[in-house]
């Protein structure tokens, strides 16, 4: 019963949270009020962990909340609930796009959306930069890393590991 409820609640979040992981947070606060699955303090811990572990934040939050409520099975079911609406909707959109991708109007639309998405990504970058590049040292490391990346096109995974090591060595 709890599994069904978990699946359904997270299905709803997946259906209504538009625009990324942070959008799931207000829904989770509602959940903690509605059911006695986890407290607000626990939720705060979850956000800290979800942001600092690998994987999309929204998925991490769902797994954590499900785990807190009903163990490993709970974590699995909450996450599946969260992604099910995406899978259904995206498959429908992808089918449509396949039929109309060559349509000139669709081409005009996509052409105009690309620069707007670039602006969105730039804004996201500014937000992350505000909290992560707050000391002279971190700004220096940022410039060195950026120059390295521009010069040597290595895998991002390598650079993420390198950044973690730099963080530990320099105690950022």
């Amino acid at each position: 019963m709890i599994y069904l409820q978990l699946f359904f609640e997270f299905f709803k979040i997946g259906l209504f949270a538009i625009g990324g992981g942070a959008a799931t947070i207000p829904f989770l606060f509602d959940l903690s009020e509605k059911h006695n699955w986890f407290s607000v303090e626990e939720l705060t811990n979850m956000i800290a962990v979800a942001e600092s572990t690998p994987g999309p934040i929204g998925v991490n939050m769902a797994t954590f909340a499900g785990f807190q409520t009903a163990g490993i099975t709970g974590g699995l079911i909450a996450t599946l609930g969260l992604v099910t609406p995406s899978v259904i909707i995206i498959i429908m959109v992808a089918k449509l796009l396949k039929c109309y991708a060559q349509n000139p109007n669709v081409q005009i639309m996509l052409g105009a959306i690309r620069p707007a998405v670039l602006a969105l990504i730039l804004c996201a970058l500014m937000q992350i930069a505000k909290i992560s590049l707050n000391t002279g040292l971190s700004i220096g490391v940022f410039f060195i890393l950026t120059l390295l990346m521009l010069k040597y096109k290595k895998s991002p995974i390598l650079y993420i590991i390198l950044s973690a090591v730099i963080g530990i060595v320099l105690k950022i």
Partner: peptide, 24 residues
């Protein structure tokens, strides 16, 4: 140690996204 590693990763992610924006 986890905290330092994450602070480093955040800087790395900033740099990765900057390069991506530049290329795109």
């Amino acid at each position: 140690t986890v905290e330092h590693a994450l602070a480093g990763i955040r800087i790395g992610v900033c740099a990765l996204i900057s390069v991506l924006i530049f290329d795109m």
